[in-house]
Write a protein that binds this DNA or RNA. Sequence first.
DNA 1: CGGCAAATTGAGCATTGTCAATGTCTGTGG
DNA 2: CCACAGACATTGACAATGCTCAATTTGCCG
Lengths: 269, 269
Amino acid sequence: MTFPAVPLLTPTLRKLERRAPLDDDDRRAFLDLPVRYQAVDPNIYLVREGDRPDRSCLLISGFAIRHKMTETGERQVLSFHVAGDFCDLEGALLNVADHNLQTLTHCELAFIPRSAVRDLILSHPRIGMAMWIDTLIDSSIFREWVVNVGRRDGRARIAHLLCEFARRMEVAGLADAAGYELPLTQEQIADATGLTAVHVNRVLKTLTSEGLIRRTRRVVSIPNWAGLRRAAGFNETYLHLDQVAGHPGVQPGFVIAPAMPPHGGAPSF
Amino acid sequence: MTFPAVPLLTPTLRKLERRAPLDDDDRRAFLDLPVRYQAVDPNIYLVREGDRPDRSCLLISGFAIRHKMTETGERQVLSFHVAGDFCDLEGALLNVADHNLQTLTHCELAFIPRSAVRDLILSHPRIGMAMWIDTLIDSSIFREWVVNVGRRDGRARIAHLLCEFARRMEVAGLADAAGYELPLTQEQIADATGLTAVHVNRVLKTLTSEGLIRRTRRVVSIPNWAGLRRAAGFNETYLHLDQVAGHPGVQPGFVIAPAMPPHGGAPSF
DNA sequence: CGGCAAATTGAGCATTGTCAATGTCTGTGG
DNA sequence: CCACAGACATTGACAATGCTCAATTTGCCG
């Protein structure tokens, strides 16, 4: 099934415009991309590790995750994606997929042929640069996840995941005063934080009893943002929100992380 | 001090040519980049978290690492870089540095103004695409590190780090039959694997006694590559070596990972 | 009202961390 | 050429965070 692409791609275009200045020709070229629109059920693989991709994809609505398995069969979630994310640009530029991409909820997707993305990048380098910046921000988030699973204890890891989710949902316009829906099972949270589902359950109970979060089924709200931020050691610099479209403003109850403290110690260049 | 840039940038150019076809104009534009060459001591910060970068940098010789600290002062190493790596392209495209970049050994570097990199990307999109692919491969490596610290035990984590190092050194032409020099202290290995230096020491002892590695001071050799690979669960797909320049061939004693086993289980799209 | 996936809880345990002491290598200055 | 300093590596004893296994409860859906 094919739908008019323009309204579907417009939010993503607005996001790209925030990264690099585009002219009318750039905008037209982007909106003229040959996209195939498709609605997809929850828990469906869009890309599998080892695939040789012939397309790229963009998430129009819903939630998706990237993940990877070890040889011993343990799963690690690598990132989650929300509406508007260009969640598989790798598909256009890398020859073999190094991880899986799977829907979490019902999703609407736009598939774009690999060759069309490459042609666009070469013919309209400003758009290419904007999309590149998108993947660099993803990269920054992966780095923070390395820190999260490498150097924080269970409580801080989960608090950090919740903080990141809250901020990203907010920026995507998907969070309100009541909180946000966390489309993850406790097992998926475990796979994202390098813990077990049992331990996640215990930590969520602790965070709730400490008054840092409130939960009813899958909806999470954060009655004590400052406290959760402190528990997580959350500093949102890594989200590069100055280069992300949406609602960059501060919501009531949310506090933007202060600037980094001055450096000390090791010599600088 | 300024040196003729051409011979210094040539290896990197060769690497880029492997990612996207370039013409003479592309090559000339790249080699004409206004670079400042500089030799730098070990343990010097090139970029600090929070910096607003005005340049990008490229590692001509030596080793460098990226790292990040948590609020509680724990360090996590995010990646290591070898000669030829364009190790801070983010500096040209992101507005604020989200991590630190530090030399490990004595290094030779090429610094390129942020504006020159951006101009090159816009005027020569094929070069831009090639550099973009470079950062996507970095991103793939970050993903594998998330898996490493999130889902492998200490022994597998360290084995995996050693496997990755071995392959990358080999591709960069820096490993020989005798092994390679690992320019990391045990504490730095700990910071890269989310362990403590004490535990790293014990694991290295185990790996040595199992005959999987051999060590003399900082030089590591791998007498049993298949065994180390098995201990690590190492599958080099994530290095995207088909898109990396250098010596893609197999060295004696090294075995390229077989293709992924067929998928099973969850539904695919 | 079943059937099922997800959440919750308890008990025991192991991988890895902490603390602290000691050994080893390398470079430097006398 | 040797002694010393300092960084790094190694080892031991003990503690704890988070895992395993297993049972039970809860909420959702047809």
